[in-house]
Design a protein around this nucleic acid. Structure first.
Length: 550
RNA sequence: GGCCUGUUGGUGAAGUGGCUUAACACACUGCCCUCUCAAGGCAGCAUUCACGGAUUCGAAUUCCGUACAGGCUACCA
């Protein structure tokens, strides 16, 4: 075809496209950002389901853009109507809000480079395709699905590469007359890339995470525009990330094999290449088979994003976990910098795991504990209240009614270099602090206790009534307990008791245990004296009474 | 079948040719501290980096083969 013929063809195929490439190039000028600023994007397709892997890549997008003073935008990749799920887009947006992984630009977030929804950019894609046709780099292909299936079968038998390329690209060099004939017959067509690649040649692609990779050149006439006129992922990626001036494409590594195509597309279109960072998928060792597999919605509850909210895992703690996956040196840094948080850490691609990262629930839980231990009692109170409002209204009400006490309880052993590390989820607070709220403290609290022992009520009563002084410090208090112990035939220290067990009825610890059980209903608790101090003598006596009548 | 990528303890992993008798963290076990628990301290937990060969004075680190695993090979993303 001559150039005139190609122009005629382009106008025949896209009569309604009246804008030019230059129009869009001018409309979306380069961003006014510094050299090192990274522009990243999260491009979900609206299937309605967001999983941990999606969150991980969005998290990386956010973190890299933020720390370089760049931009992180949300682009809805809805070129395939079959994948659309009602409410899917809204769900994506609300999950990003819930998890505090917020783009500063994009669909529903505003910005100068929209529309940020691919289904609204059809005209843009077609403008660029029209231009490619004029340049002889793309062509309409009228092959039917049956024809293509046959070719595929043949290729499978011959064990050659599958796809439309070389001799298989039948419509590559159709004359203008032949195209017109097809068009007159009303034949359906797609637009294919006229790939200039040579599979015998090798190209090298550098990935920010995986490093250098070598591939044969891409030589398949990949579909650019489907028969309904919408673009395939590959073409939309090239156009959008160019026009939106993405600098770093961070995405799942299922895309690495498309790299030769994408590089070629950028070249053909005359775009400045983008950098790629392919993230390894989150995997899991299957309990049954022992094999590594991708995490699955059905088998792995924490894969779905609802799990975290329902179980009361703090969003910030999840961020911590995502950060440890994102950069392998994050965890060590975080543990040794107790006064800092995620935004102080400098993420880098070369500290990113290359192989698959396996989900480690124990580690997540531990990170949660560390997270809680670094929060003040008041912060834990407020966050737990917010969570309870959503999941346990009754408890939320009680938390509000007992605010002052609750904060005091949650603050026990919080100061000092080694704060308590006992809760990992909001959902655990109710049980872990079951003794904190009077109206929740019932006789049943005693039967839940794993101790079968019968404690000496009179002894405890005597102690509380006649010896307990709540107006002192911990050390003074404990010395008092020691004195009380020895004057009642108990050893003042467990060591003494161990030496001569026959000389004593027991030791201080036994007395403390009796008090603890009567006051808290548990064998284990944070510092007993702190708890008693908050409760006060009256409430302590009431609990002993409750114990007596249990 | 073809093309890519990966494989270090129970787990996440550090490691880029000698500083590694393999860091750190989680989990687990034991001891210590201690009124219980949590925390903390100490110790134990891979003589070896999937396997086989090559290069080198020297390899977890480079190269080649094998095995296994994952991804792609759609008018899905």
């Amino acid at each position: 075809m001559t150039e005139e013929e190609r122009i005629e063809l382009a106008n025949l195929l896209f009569p309604n496209i009246d804008k030019t490439r230059d129009y869009y190039e001018d409309k979306y000028p380069k961003r006014n950002l510094s050299e090192e600023a990274m522009v990243t994007r999260y491009g979900p397709s609206p299937t309605g389901f967001v999983h941990l892997g999606n969150l991980l890549s969005a998290f990386a997008d956010m973190v890299y853009a933020k720390q370089t003073g760049g931009s992180f935008f949300l682009r809805i990749e809805d070129t395939d109507q079959k994948r659309m799920v009602d409410g899917g887009i809204d769900n994506i947006v609300s999950v990003l809000h819930d998890f505090d992984i917020l783009p500063n630009e994009g669909y529903s977030f505003g910005g100068e480079y929209g529309p940020y929804q691919q289904s609204e950019r059809t005209e843009i894609y077609q403008t660029y395709v029209k231009d490619l046709i004029v340049k002889g780099l793309a062509y309409p292909c009228f092959m039917t699905e049956e024809e293509i299936a046959e070719i595929k079968e043949e290729q499978e038998i011959n064990k050659t590469k599958i796809g439309i390329y070389g001799v298989y690209a039948q419509d590559r060099d159709l004359s203008l007359e032949e195209v017109k004939e097809h068009l007159n017959n009303g034949d359906e067509y797609v637009i294919r890339l006229k790939s200039p690649g040579d599979a015998k040649k090798e190209i090298e692609v550098v990935d920010c995470i995986k490093g250098k990779m070598k591939f044969p050149e891409h030589d398949v006439d990949t579909i650019l525009l489907k028969k309904d006129g919408t673009p395939t992922y590959h073409f939309a990626h090239a156009i959008d990330d160019h026009l939106m001036h993405t600098t770093h494409v961070i995405r799942g590594d299922e895309w690495v094999s498309s790299l030769p195509l994408h590089v070629q597309l950028f070249e053909i279109l005359g775009f400045e290449p983008v950098k790629y960072a392919h993230i390894a998928p989150i995997t899991i060792k299957d309990q049954e088979t022992g094999n590594i597999r991708k995490i699955s919605k059905r088998k792995d509850p924490w894969f779905g994003v609802k799990y975290y909210d329902e179980n009361g895992i703090p969003i910030e703690a999840l961020h911590l976990y995502l950060a440890t996956i994102t950069n392998t040196n994050f965890e060590e840094w975080y543990l040794s910098n107790s006064d800092k948080d995620i935004t102080d850490f400098e993420f880098s691609f070369d500290k990113q795991a290359i192989g698959g990262t396996s989900f480690d629930e124990a580690k997540l839980i531990n990170l949660c504990k560390t997270y809680f231990s670094r929060k003040s009692g008041e912060e834990v109170y407020n966050e737990t209240l917010n969570w309870a409002k959503k999941h346990d209204e009754e408890y939320a009400k009680l938390l509000e009614d007992n605010k002052d006490d609750m904060i005091k309880f949650l603050s026990i052993e919080k100061d000092g270099p080694r704060p308590r590390k006992d809760i990992s989820k909001y959902s655990e607070v109710k049980e872990e602090f079951s003794y904190a709220i009077d109206s929740l403290f019932k006789k049943e609290n005693y039967s839940k206790n794993e101790s079968e022992k019968e404690y000496d009520i009179d002894l405890v009563l005597d102690y509380v009534n006649n010896h307990l002084n709540l107006d002192c410090d911990n050390e003074e208090w404990f010395n008092g307990v020691r004195e009380f112990a020895s004057s009642n035939g108990y050893a003042a220290s467990p060591k003494d008791y161990k030496k001569n067990p026959d000389d004593y009825k027991g030791h201080v610890g036994d007395i403390c245990e009796a008090i603890r059980v009567m006051v808290t209903g548990r064998l284990k608790s944070p510092d007993l004296f702190s708890i008693m101090k908050i409760l006060g003598k009256d409430r302590i006596l009431k609990r002993i009474d409750l114990y007596k009548n249990r």
